[in-house]
Write a protein that binds this DNA or RNA. Structure first.
Lengths: 220, 220
DNA sequence: TGTTTTTGTGTGACATTATCACTGCAAACA
DNA sequence: TGTTTGCAGTGATAATGTCACACAAAAACA
């Protein structure tokens, strides 16, 4: 496990750089944890236990309705922390959403007292924590806008474009997963995908979308 | 204007209590400003100028689409601060929404350096600032849920119930205003209100909804 | 005072999206 | 081999959103 320790140390030095004793103590107080894909890190209504900083892997944060429909709010990627966790930690509210490990993850945990101490003594830590917050909040507001104002076809097109850029030429997602990203129903996505396919802009497979014509979709 | 100065001082002592020199300096550094109803305090894309703490009146924070439809995200009431402002101030992002004075307002402004200094030196100030953040973030998430999962009739019913509790027996709002609260179109609200009226649950006037049968609406 | 103008509402027609209730298909498995 | 399970397709219908108006009350104005 020495190489991982190295990686964690390097990341910490990059995110929270500085030689002060306070920062050194803070970096040392972080606990490394491993979380397997599929595990739920927090549920709606849970109190918040500690500050979470992702090192590797990814957490999906989402809300689920009684009827079973769900929406993904955002993801927490390496080097980032979770807005909701931070807010709940500070204001002692309970989680308003749930977080699930999407890819096997490694994270650093700062206990509540360590976190508060860090905020108190380190300018660097404060900046790190709260600049994370600002970006996420903006994301959430964009999300609201998107859901309320944009049409489904253009939202789906945007999503496909985004995925086809990161993942290579084939997007391995079910219609249900795409629907969750958009906060809509599976059937709606299926139908819209069919429309795109008929226009020759995508090719559908079982659990996949491939040969995405980005240029064509941009025009939706 | 001496009584107002008194009121401001009292509020500040209540929100940021303590005798330390740091806190005293912080309280003294706040500038009192008056803002008339209708004035826009910040626009989308603006950089953030300072930390805003409401003393009296109310700010409405909303996003507007190109097509002119708008949604109210939340309001900032006396004793509160604006999440977006705080986040943008800390992370140096631009405003993702706009803020409009809804009722003639008095607010305290802390300049960026004063704000940062305050965060650095005062535990009390940090707690105040960030507990505000936590609550708002939860509100925003509830808002997303509501918009995505709930049906319009029940959302409208909920809104009417809420207003008929605070305002007396008559709600003085146009259909357009109600629609903005829900993030939907005016016609949709008009039609739904008509349905409620036909069932005898409300009485409609020009610019008003009265005689709200809360019990009946709860059942929607 | 009567006459515009503005603002708020009502409504029909139609497009989009959501929901329900199925069907069929393919992979996984016993 | 049949059987279960998860994924996708589809028709019917309901709910919402959009567009294009008509109409009336209120406000502004001459």
């Amino acid at each position: 496990m020495v190489p991982e320790k190295q990686a964690v140390a390097t990341l910490l030095m990059k995110l929270l750089p500085g030689d002060s004793k306070d920062l050194q103590q803070l970096r040392e107080a972080a606990q490394t944890v491993h979380l397997p894909a599929g595990q739920m890190v927090f549920r709606r209504g849970d109190p918040c236990q500690g500050y979470l900083l992702m090192v590797a892997g990814c957490v999906r944060v989402q809300v689920v309705s009684e009827s079973g429909r769900d929406v993904v709010l955002y993801r927490v990627n390496p080097g980032e922390s979770c807005v909701i966790t931070t807010s709940c930690l500070i204001s002692h509210e309970n989680y308003p959403a749930e977080g699930i490990i999407e890819e096997d993850a490694t994270a650093l945990v700062f206990s509540q007292p360590v976190f508060e101490q860090g905020l108190a003594v380190s300018e660097v830590f404060r900046r790190f924590v709260f600049s994370n917050q600002g970006r996420r909040l903006s994301d959430l507001i964009l999300r609201i806008e998107d859901v309320i104002f944009e049409r489904l076809d253009s939202r789906l097109a945007k999503l496909l474009i985004e995925y086809s850029k990161t993942q290579q030429s084939i997007i391995n997602m079910t219609h249900q997963q795409l629907a969750s990203e958009l906060g809509t129903a599976r059937e709606v996505v299926s139908r819209q995908l069919k429309v795109f396919e008929k226009k020759g802009w995508i090719v559908l497979g079982r659990g996949s979308v491939s040969q995405v014509n980005i240029e064509a979709l941009r025009g939706v």
